[in-house]
């Protein structure tokens, strides 16, 4: 709904002012739409990209992959799109929004996290979760689809008290101790630092999420967008991603 509001707002501004906003003083903006889970990593790499390309400002929009595809479909001006799963990149490709064939640049697996000190005494995806407050991602969003796939692969039934739309919402509920346990990406567990304890899931590999990146077809900065993709898929990008826990 926010998108429609924004579109309506933009339309109104155009109708009433008849003057689209002009860009700054010769500076070039590179707009990157990236899945929420890429937030700290891509922001770091964006700063490095700016340092290597004077006069270029990298602007990020971090959101759920599906929401980003919706925004692209509505004509949001983006140059690069990075999705947290293949399904959403396929949606964007099918809609003819992606310029070249998108490439997989990393993967992510799920893990169980508990508040620091594990007050509820959780031991893993087992009977220790009975009658405890488990929070997961909702089916349909990338991390939730992965959670469902993992539960099926491991032959277990999860009884969550909450199914969140964003993986960060799972994380914050565990960090604050509201929830006894949560299933998030390894990278979220790592980003959480000392606020949570991590209980690796044996067989987590059975539900590995692929991250794909591609240049947006409508981009007016095609060479620059291609260079950004190269940074991500290249040695430096992979190094930063691995440090954050991706591909592990």
């Amino acid at each position: 709904m926010r998108r429609q509001l924004r579109a309506g707002l933009a339309a109104t501004l155009l109708l009433t002012a008849c003057a689209p906003p002009s860009s700054g003083s010769g500076n070039t903006d590179l707009v990157v739409f990236a899945a929420s889970s890429l937030n700290p990593t891509f922001a770091t790499l964006g700063k490095e990209f700016e340092a290597a390309h004077p006069g270029v400002t990298v602007k990020f929009s971090f959101d759920g992959s599906a929401a980003l595809v919706d925004q692209l479909k509505a004509g949001a001006p983006a140059d690069v799109f990075a999705s947290a799963d293949k399904a959403n990149m396929d949606k964007a490709s099918t809609a003819g929004l992606i310029g070249n064939s998108p490439v997989q640049f990393t993967t992510n697996v799920l893990t169980l996290i508990v508040p620091k000190g594990n007050p509820a005494g959780i031991t893993g995806l087992d009977a220790s979760l009975d009658n405890k407050l488990l929070v997961v991602c909702a089916d349909g969003v990338p991390c939730g689809t992965a959670t469902k796939k993992l539960a099926a692969a491991l032959g277990i039934t999860l009884k969550p008290v909450s199914e969140e739309t964003k993986v960060t919402d799972v994380r914050t509920k565990v960090e604050s101790g509201q929830a006894d346990a949560g299933i998030v990406y390894v990278t979220d567990a790592k980003a959480s630092g000392g606020k949570v304890d991590t209980l690796p899931i044996a067989g987590a590999d059975k539900a590995r999420n692929s991250y794909l990146i591609g240049r947006v077809l409508a981009s007016k900065q095609a060479p620059l967008a291609a260079e950004f993709v190269t940074l991500i898929t290249g040695e430096r990008g992979q190094q930063v991603l691995e440090t954050a826990g991706f591909g592990g």
């Binding site: 709904m1 429609q4 759920g64 599906a66 929401a67 919706d70 929070v135 909702a138 349909g140 969003v141 969550p160 008290v161 909450s162 199914e163 969140e164 739309t165 919402d169 509920k173 509201q178």
Partner: peptide
């Protein structure tokens, strides 16, 4: 969302369902 969570039939009210469907199926959200 911050305080109660989001579970069908228990805490997922209309706005929360819309927020979720925005990610899953935008037609339902609309």
């Amino acid at each position: 969302l911050t305080f109660a969570g989001s579970l069908q039939g228990t805490t997922r009210t209309l706005p929360l369902e819309i927020y979720l469907q925005r990610e899953v199926d935008s037609d339902t959200a609309i």
